[in-house]
Amino acid sequence: MSENKGKLFKALKAAFPKTIPILASFLFLGLTYGIYMNVSGFSFVYPMIMSAVIFAGSIEFVTVSLLLSAFDPVQALLLTLMINARHLFYGISMLDKYRNTGLKKIYLIFGMCDESFSINYSAEIPDDVDKGWFMFFVTLLNHLYWFTGSTLGGIFGSLINFDTKGIEFVMTAMFTVVFLEQWLKEKNRFSALCGIAVSVICLLIFGRDRFIVPAMIAILAVLTLVRKPLEKAVSGE
């Protein structure tokens, strides 16, 4: 029993320092998310529950818009699948690392947000630390930061009398930064331009409430059509 406790503590001690940057950013983003939900007219119970059961930053901001627009569960599902499609590829990368982690594997996969993925994928875990528990604590700590920030934001937002008009821009800013980060890293920028161009065209044709699904289909179609030349271009660089 005490040997097991020691193992857990060691894994926690190794995991915590890796999550400090996430502590800062998740508290800030979680707070903003909670305040954003609050000023959109939702009680703190909403960000509290959502941050616990969804735990995927960008889609939670989008969920606020979804809850404020017309009821459309199909669009909600499709939008979630599209926004979170990147998880499919995180999953593919983690197939090996999450192997043989027992029951913890279910939580590891459930909590595989961008940040948990990047730490668990890239961290060099010391030999004497249990890898499964290390990754478990990274995921759990991140989840706790996000949950705490979101809940505090939800409560805090109702206590302060502060005009937060424009705070929804945090979502635009976040995607802009992620987009720029990817843009700087990517070898091919065609898909970036394709994403923006196709979306703008679909927005003009289908209007603000109905353009997402056509845009998703068009993006998949374009990227599938240009696969050969694009792959050639990337491998040629």
């Binding site: 599209m82 926004i83 987009f179 990817q182 331009l193 923006i196 979306s199 845009a215 998703m216 694009l230």
Partner: peptide, 13 residues
Amino acid sequence: VLPLAVFGLLIVY
């Protein structure tokens, strides 16, 4: 190729 296109879509969204 998909992630970058998706973030472009999200900004437009």
